Amino acid sequence: MDVEEVLLPGVGLRYEFTTADGRRIGVVARRGGGFEFVSYPGHDPDEVHPLFRLTTEEAEAVTEILGAPRIAERFADLTREVPGLEAGQVEVTARSAFDGRTLGETRARTRTGASIVAIVRGEDVIASPGPGQPLRAGDILVVIGTRQGITGVESILAG
């Protein structure tokens, strides 16, 4: 899909694309925060119909909702394309020494070569978590690496 980016001086950026059914849609990312979704009913780019607005926080929630299935798809595709690479899920239990500590404290990537690419926390998905991300009992870590690396992350969290 082609997404056109248009600079709106003093306003922000507008991203435009055409849907599969031929509708032209735009998303305006405002400099001051927030997003406005618009449609273009005709061929005139100046004829705009506002659809709705989202705060930055609301847009992040929508991104997580829409991004979670795409993240899973991309990892599944990647593991099929790269021999020896697998995706796994590791739970942080209440007995884990890392319950309440940060992801970085596990040193999982350094110790195993496997990467924790997302954390599923209830209904939320934290994509690309940073080392300062706290871990909680019940979190499911999405891990990409070799089978041995994934097993190593399980061992670290269990220990």
Rank of each mutant, 00 (worst) to 15 (best):
residue 78 L to H: 10
residue 136 R to M: 11
residue 114 A to C: 08
residue 75 F to C: 12
residue 104 G to R: 02
residue 136 R to G: 12
residue 120 V to C: 05
residue 106 T to K: 10
residue 126 I to A: 09
residue 143 V to L: 13
residue 126 I to K: 08
residue 74 R to M: 12
residue 69 P to W: 08
residue 129 P to R: 06
residue 113 G to Q: 06
residue 13 L to A: 04
residue 159 G to E: 10
residue 145 G to Y: 05
residue 83 P to M: 00
residue 16 E to I: 08
residue 44 D to F: 04
residue 45 P to G: 08
residue 153 V to E: 09
residue 87 A to P: 03
residue 64 E to H: 09
residue 31 R to V: 05
residue 76 A to H: 12
residue 102 T to C: 13
residue 136 R to L: 14
residue 108 A to H: 06
residue 153 V to F: 07
residue 27 V to C: 06
residue 96 S to R: 05
residue 45 P to K: 08
residue 137 A to I: 01
residue 42 G to L: 02
residue 12 G to K: 08
residue 49 H to G: 00
residue 139 D to K: 12
residue 44 D to M: 03
residue 133 Q to F: 00
residue 102 T to I: 10
residue 76 A to P: 04
residue 57 E to F: 01
residue 134 P to K: 04
residue 75 F to N: 10
residue 132 G to P: 01
residue 98 F to H: 09
residue 134 P to Y: 02
residue 151 T to I: 04
residue 150 I to Y: 07
residue 1 M to I: 10
residue 79 T to C: 13
residue 29 A to Y: 03
residue 1 M to A: 15
residue 130 G to Y: 00
residue 115 S to V: 12
residue 149 G to M: 06
residue 100 G to N: 02
residue 130 G to R: 14
residue 18 T to P: 06
residue 8 L to Q: 04
residue 110 T to Q: 15
residue 97 A to V: 03
residue 42 G to T: 14
residue 9 P to L: 13
residue 18 T to I: 15
residue 158 A to E: 14
residue 159 G to T: 01
residue 1 M to W: 05
residue 79 T to F: 01
residue 114 A to V: 07
residue 121 R to M: 04
residue 90 V to P: 08
residue 116 I to W: 02
residue 5 E to K: 13
residue 148 Q to P: 00
residue 62 V to D: 09
residue 50 P to A: 05
residue 66 L to T: 09
residue 84 G to H: 03
residue 71 I to W: 00
residue 156 I to K: 12
residue 64 E to I: 02
residue 67 G to Y: 01
residue 93 T to V: 05
residue 155 S to A: 15
residue 100 G to A: 04
residue 64 E to V: 01
residue 109 R to H: 13
residue 138 G to N: 08
residue 17 F to W: 14
residue 84 G to C: 01
residue 68 A to D: 10
residue 128 S to E: 13
residue 11 V to E: 12
residue 137 A to D: 09
residue 128 S to V: 11
residue 112 T to A: 12
residue 106 T to M: 06
residue 125 V to P: 02
residue 125 V to Y: 05
residue 132 G to D: 14
residue 97 A to H: 07
residue 84 G to S: 02
residue 81 E to F: 05
residue 3 V to Y: 06
residue 3 V to W: 11
residue 155 S to K: 13
residue 134 P to F: 05
residue 5 E to A: 07
residue 80 R to A: 15
residue 147 R to C: 01
residue 24 R to C: 03
residue 25 I to T: 07
